[in-house]
Simulated assay, not measured.
Amino acid sequence: MKNLLPFITSFFLPGIGQFILKDFKKGGIILASYIISTFLILNLDFLSLIPFWFPHIIIMIWAIFGVYDIIEERDGKKSATRYLAFSLLIVIVLFPITLTLLTTGIFKGAEFVTNEYLNEDRTKTEMNKISTELSLYKNHYGTYPKNYESFVSRKPIWGSWKADSWKNPYKYELIDSLNYKLISAGKDGIYLNEDDIIRRN
Rank of each mutant, 00 (worst) to 15 (best):
M1G: 01
N3A: 13
F7I: 03
I8K: 14
T9N: 13
S10A: 02
L13Y: 12
L13C: 12
P14E: 00
I16D: 00
Q18F: 03
F19R: 01
F19E: 04
I20Y: 06
L21P: 09
L21I: 05
D23F: 00
F24D: 10
F24V: 07
K25Y: 06
K26E: 06
G27H: 12
G27E: 02
G27W: 02
G28A: 01
I30V: 00
A32W: 10
I35P: 11
S37C: 05
S37T: 14
F39K: 01
N43W: 09
I50S: 15
P51H: 11
F52Q: 04
F52L: 03
W53F: 15
W53S: 13
F54Y: 12
P55A: 07
H56D: 06
H56L: 12
H56F: 11
I57T: 05
I57Q: 01
I58N: 05
I58Y: 03
I59S: 04
I59K: 05
I61Q: 01
W62Y: 14
W62G: 11
I64R: 06
F65I: 05
G66K: 14
Y68C: 06
D69W: 05
I70N: 02
E73D: 11
R74D: 14
D75V: 07
D75Q: 11
K77T: 08
K78D: 02
A80D: 03
T81K: 14
L84A: 09
L84E: 02
L84Q: 11
S87V: 05
S87D: 03
S87R: 07
L88E: 02
L89Y: 03
I90C: 10
V91D: 03
F95K: 10
P96A: 09
I97S: 09
I97K: 00
I97E: 09
T98F: 13
L99Q: 12
T103G: 13
G109A: 06
N115Q: 09
L118F: 15
E120N: 15
E120P: 04
E120W: 11
D121S: 14
R122A: 07
R122I: 12
T123R: 04
T123I: 10
T123Y: 09
E126K: 08
M127C: 08
N128V: 12
K129D: 02
K129A: 03
I130P: 00
E133T: 10
L134T: 00
S135M: 15
Y137T: 12
T143F: 06
P145L: 08
K146C: 08
K146S: 13
Y148G: 07
S150C: 10
F151G: 00
S153A: 06
P156S: 15
I157A: 15
W158N: 08
W158I: 08
S165W: 03
K167T: 02
K167A: 11
N168F: 11
N168E: 12
Y170H: 07
K171N: 00
Y172I: 13
D176K: 01
S177Y: 01
N179L: 09
K181V: 04
K181G: 04
K181I: 15
A185G: 05
G186S: 01
G186F: 07
D188L: 10
I190V: 14
I190R: 08
Y191A: 03
Y191K: 07
L192K: 11
N193E: 04
N193V: 01
N193H: 03
D195Q: 03
D195W: 13
I198L: 09
R199G: 00
R200E: 15
N201E: 01
